[in-house]
Design a protein around this nucleic acid. Structure first.
Lengths: 263, 263
DNA sequence: CGCACGGTTGACCTGTATCAAGCCGGGTGG
DNA sequence: CCACCCGGCTTGATACAGGTCAACCGTGCG
């Protein structure tokens, strides 16, 4: 998967402002949270300007990652959490025997790296699915400042708890849903998160391959493909490559909590 | 369960208000962590006695839960985390359409309730699979004290991170393993945790039904049963009801990371 | 232009679910 | 104390969702 090349340059408006000429792999520079437009996604709301000043110190630098590059890898020492500013990531765990599992897809405003806290080493890989930029937040700094700013402390707890709850949802999906339900749930989840970021509620561009979707959903890529085709036949979605338009969101919702009924 | 006269000394501040009236189902009383024999499972190590005194304030009361009783339920307000002192729990999430999924089994020394932090309400049920006793740790108290005791702060972060990593493992299991691998992984995990608590490395008593195991592993109870039978035939384990003796742990390990070879 | 990777589709196979019957053990009430 | 019942478990027969293997296509990159 070493296919760096031209960044997938889909013009789905939005984050263009942050497009800055890329130099080498991971260029770094300094910025402030206080005037970041993603603030309300990463940070607690209602901070005094004094507190905000403290919180600004959480982010030391930003870092750019090219498509296909890794933000961190299983086994690497853990030092920082990362707030995604732009771009799209997948995280995945692997067993020695080569099998691997995508554990999540992360987009702007989301935090990654929480897995590293327990053992001071990361236990999964974070791979950029498109050119990305993250805010680096050294974890000792986070702990220090969250001792002073209660709202930040609670916010950190919430972020971790949210991740736990999200994973519960994935377990439910993997443990008890059939292929159609999984894919429907996946699409609804993606589009909902994108919508919260100001994108369309009905149209999305998949940043990942069918294989990656399959890995996340516990399905083979062929099954993902077939299920997409089925949705298309039924007029629920339009699919052209990675571009998906949802024609009937209600149908998707019905699929998710139908479970073939009865019993 | 000696009446904790030693704990009565604490007398800190006016938290008496939090004393919940004792009901029949869940009896409550006060104790100290500093001389709890599970300390090293719940708490950070290497605290000064001064810090330990602060940390003692984290646990307000204990609570007993009978087999089949719930510690908390989906939708209930979140106020506290719980450290399991004795007994065995399952946590499970459910969809409106009745389907549900066991997300984990918890034993002595483990912490439950982390799911409630994000939304101030629990998002899953915690059910006692045998008579149990838990330490109640009001979360605002945890936050307060962990601002003062760095080691506690970091410990809380680790506990949450550990849960995230554990769930990654379950996702891997559910997303990419076959029935035998799942059950083998499950048994190894259980026995390893029990061993860490001083129990046998080769013998265990399952506290849950085949159906609950199945729910956790994303299998039907019949498949769980058949897979047990297969392991018995192969001489890997002995199974009498819920009593399991592992005869060949190596074989289980081989099953877990074999994945039908090759590729 | 052509290759290669991602995606689609078809044919077939298999692991697990489903349905059903029966067993075992423990608790209850007569 | 026994008979009975019931929940949990096992086992068999059969069905089917999804996996596997394979061929082919389209598109975007070198």
């Amino acid at each position: 998967m070493s296919r760096p090349s031209a960044a997938a340059k889909v013009s789905t408006a939005g984050h263009e402002a942050t497009h800055i000429p890329i130099q080498d792999a991971s260029q770094t520079f300094r910025v402030a949270c206080s005037n970041c437009n993603l603030r309300e996604l990463c940070l607690p709301v209602g901070l005094t300007s004094e507190q905000m000043e403290r919180v600004d110190d959480v982010v030391t630098v930003r870092r750019k990652i090219k498509r296909g590059g890794t933000l961190f890898r299983n086994g690497e020492p853990f030092t920082s959490l990362f707030a995604i500013r732009t771009g799209f990531f997948k995280t995945c765990v692997a067993t020695e025997d080569g099998r691997d599992q995508v554990t999540g897809f992360q987009m702007a405003g989301e935090i990654i790296g929480l897995d590293g806290i327990v053992h001071d080493h990361h236990s999964c890989d974070a791979v950029a699915l498109e050119d990305a930029e993250v805010c680096v937040m050294p974890f000792d700094r986070i702990e220090e400042i969250s001792r002073e700013v209660n709202a930040l402390q609670h916010h950190v707890h919430k972020i971790m708890s949210r991740e736990i709850v999200r994973e519960h949802g994935v377990m439910l999906l993997l443990g008890s849903m059939r292929a159609e339900e999984r894919l429907a749930a996946f699409l609804l989840n993606l589009v909902q998160r994108l919508h919260a970021r100001g994108f369309s509620q009905t149209e999305l561009v998949l940043r990942m391959t069918r294989e990656e979707i399959g890995s996340y959903l516990g399905l083979k890529l062929e099954t993902v493909s077939r299920t997409f085709s089925k949705f298309v036949e039924e007029g629920i979605v339009e699919v052209k490559q990675r571009h998906v338009r949802i024609l009937d969101a209600e149908a998707l919702k019905r699929i998710v909590n139908s479970q073939q009924e009865c019993r």
